[in-house]
Amino acid sequence: MSKLFSADNVSVRFGGLQALDKLSLDIDEGTIIGLIGPNGSGKTTFFNAVTGLCRTAGGQILVDGEDIAGLHPRHVYQRGVSRTFQRSRLCLSLSVFDNVVIGRQNALDLTLFGNLFRRGRFIESVRENHDRVRALLSTFSEPLAARTFDPLHTLSMIDRRRIEVCRALIANPRLLLLDEPSAGMTPDETHEFMSDILKVRGDHPRMSIIIIEHEMDVIQRVADRCVVLNFGKKVAEGTFDAVVADPWVQEAYLGSS
């Protein structure tokens, strides 16, 4: 297996706060890493640093050996990284279809000429993209797949979570960053949702995932490896069993002595 992504001594500072402190992390193609740690330990900040939403104060972020630290979010996306947000960032006034299809930015014809004067061809591509969006949505929920032209604000919270994951997946990313995708779901819903994500990954065996998750049983089920953060520092790393057995994790994160 080849190394797809590696963060090397990445630091992020917000004023006097060291949100990430020399974090290093590698992922091989096709593996899933669970990123865990208490509230405010810098997990979301790490995703923001990778996707160009906050500046790093040192270190390298390598995708295929190329340093993407400091690139504009748009260029990070073009290198095959897509993500979801802890607090949903969907366009409530647009349709489900619009919200998902935006993730296929690279595949869409964005020329003025193509959009205004080749309408026949444009409508062809609407049909093709609509089929893709429907197919992806139906992996998660058949009823949802029938609602492609409903306004997003009419969807339940769970469906909105699904839409956000679909928007990230439809880009066919090489690295997918999931920030607490199951927040607000019941354990049963979470279980089903994770199965669906794994199902999609089955079709893209080379896609790598980093997932931030508070539910330890979710991590146990999906993650090949775990990384534990505390105050922006990596405090443990390894398989789930190894990490949970770590005395520091026992005390600081799981709260048992």
Binding site: G52, P73, S82, L90, C91, L110, L112, L116, F122, A171
Partner: peptide, 29 residues
């Protein structure tokens, strides 16, 4: 009308509602 109902129209609406979110999905805001 064509512009509104096109990939460009979807891009414009997305970036108006959430420029940061749109940029993360490759929209050249």
């Amino acid at each position: 009308r064509f512009l509104e109902k096109s990939w460009i129209g979807i891009n414009l609406d997305s970036m108006r509602e959430d420029p940061v979110g749109a940029a993360v999905f490759g929209v050249n805001v």
